[in-house]
Amino acid sequence: MSDAPVNLNRVRKQKARAKDKARADENAARFGRTKAQKALEQAQTEKARAALDQHRRDED
């Protein structure tokens, strides 16, 4: 045991901060993407769709 007294409020707040940080990290991994990443993904999707449409056969 340590000789110094423990501030229980500080311990409680540190525990709450750790829990909040863990939740934030989980959400960032699940949902977090930068604007550039979203734009890149959209551009790739549009390019793939355009390439697929170019190979489409017209049935007349």
Rank of each mutant, 00 (worst) to 15 (best):
A39H: 07
K13E: 14
K35W: 05
N7M: 05
R12P: 01
R17P: 01
N27L: 06
Q37M: 06
D25C: 07
R12Y: 11
Q14E: 15
T34E: 03
A28T: 02
A22F: 08
G32A: 01
G32R: 01
K21R: 14
K19Q: 11
R23D: 09
A24L: 13
K15C: 11
N27V: 01
R30H: 00
A29N: 04
A36T: 13
A24C: 07
K19H: 10
R17S: 11
T34K: 05
K13I: 14
K21G: 01
K35E: 12
A28C: 04
R33M: 07
V11E: 07
L40Q: 15
N7Q: 10
A39C: 07
R17H: 12
N9S: 15
N7W: 04
K35F: 06
A28V: 02
Q14G: 07
A16K: 11
K35N: 12
R30I: 00
A36M: 07
A24I: 05
R23I: 04
D25V: 03
T34D: 02
N7T: 05
A24Q: 12
N27T: 02
A36L: 14
A18M: 10
F31G: 00
K13G: 03
N27G: 00
A28P: 00
K15V: 15
K15Y: 11
K21C: 02
R23A: 07
K15F: 13
F31H: 05
G32Y: 01
V11Q: 05
K19M: 04
D25M: 06
L8H: 13
A24R: 12
A22H: 09
A16I: 09
D20C: 06
A24K: 09
V6A: 06
D20I: 01
V6W: 04
D20Y: 04
A18I: 03
G32K: 01
F31C: 00
D20R: 15
N7L: 06
L8S: 13
D20Q: 14
R17D: 11
E26Y: 03
K35T: 14
R23K: 15
